[in-house]
């Protein structure tokens, strides 16, 4: 394997890792903050992709990077409001509810867009390749890495430097205490849920020009992102980015060397990681989980 080929594979892996990161970051926020798993996330990811197919030719690709997450986030608000009566109750109800939502959204997409798998043509300045030190990289993949890095930074900034992030960290530690201090927990939950959904939608937008998706894929997306979530640690938001990039790289190299076992490599890695530490290998030593 030549150096240029190696570097190109690295870029491919990192870019696909970034797309998964957007999905996982939202998931992890919802899991650790609200103590629920949102199985609708995958369906909203695909919804983001399909909205881009329809919106990008009209308003352009870059504006749809902003508009589509907003739409998906707004839809997330409806989901959150309807799931609210179940939040204090048995965990199973919430899971089944989001499962049901995902089925409804998937079939709604079939109703609107049909089964045809499509691809999006990129705007001029994002298509083609750029040469760095004589090695050619596709511009769009670099663009994906940049957007993912920006989102990761925004997430870090939001969680560690703003008031909202402070409240979110507080609610992860101790929900009752936050409520006792007179903070509207329900509204905070709504915001959290919408942010989680919007990042999933953004991932969908970034994914639109690369892979064609079928509307029924809403649930099978989970097969890809579950290893990331378990490697990074389910309730550990800081572990998402390294885990996502790691799995992206493994997928990219696995596709070249072991195409037969392509899907199995991240799963095998996950099993090994779970045997080492069931709470994710990026957990800080001695960190108190709650």
């Amino acid at each position: 394997m030549t150096l240029s080929y190696f570097l190109q594979t690295v870029v491919t892996g990192l870019s696909s890792g970034m797309v998964s990161y957007l999905m996982v970051a939202g998931m992890s926020l919802i899991i650790s903050g609200m103590n629920m798993v949102n199985f609708g996330q995958g369906a909203f990811f695909v919804l983001g992709t399909y909205l881009t197919y329809s919106l990008a030719p009209v308003i352009g690709f870059i504006p749809s990077l902003i508009v589509v997450p907003l739409i998906v986030g707004a839809l997330g608000w409806f989901v959150e409001v309807s799931v609210r009566p179940l939040l204090g109750k048995e965990m199973l109800y919430v899971m089944l509810f989001t499962f049901g939502i995902s089925y409804i959204v998937c079939d709604g997409m079939v109703m609107i867009w049909g089964y045809s798998i499509r691809l999006l043509t990129l705007p001029q300045f994002l298509s083609g390749a750029v040469a760095i030190f004589g090695i050619r990289f596709p511009i769009y993949y670099l663009f994906m890495i940049v957007v993912g890095a920006i989102i990761a930074f925004v997430f870090w900034f939001m969680m560690n430097r703003t008031k909202l992030g402070m409240l979110m960290r507080a609610i992860i530690k101790d929900r009752e205490m936050v409520a006792c201090l007179g903070i509207n927990v329900n509204r905070l939950f709504s915001v959290m849920f919408m942010i989680g959904m919007a990042t999933a939608g953004l991932g969908g937008v970034l994914n639109a020009p690369i892979t064609g998706m079928s509307p029924k894929e809403g649930l099978s997306v989970f097969g890809n992102i579950m290893p990331i979530l378990m490697i990074g640690g389910m309730r550990n938001m800081n572990g998402c980015l390294p885990a996502a990039l790691l799995v992206g790289l493994i997928n990219a190299f696995g596709a070249i060397y072991l195409p037969q076992l392509f899907n199995l490599l991240p799963a095998a890695l996950m099993v090994i990681c779970m045997l080492i530490n069931p709470n994710g290998i990026f957990e800080k030593r001695g960190a108190r989980r709650c």
Binding site: V37, F39, M91, L219, F222, G223, M226, M230, M234, N279
Partner: peptide
């Protein structure tokens, strides 16, 4: 972790 149990089961199933 009950949540992890549920999620992993579902993920394994899809896998």
């Amino acid at each position: 972790d009950d949540l992890a149990f549920a999620f992993m089961n579902m993920g394994m199933n899809i896998l």
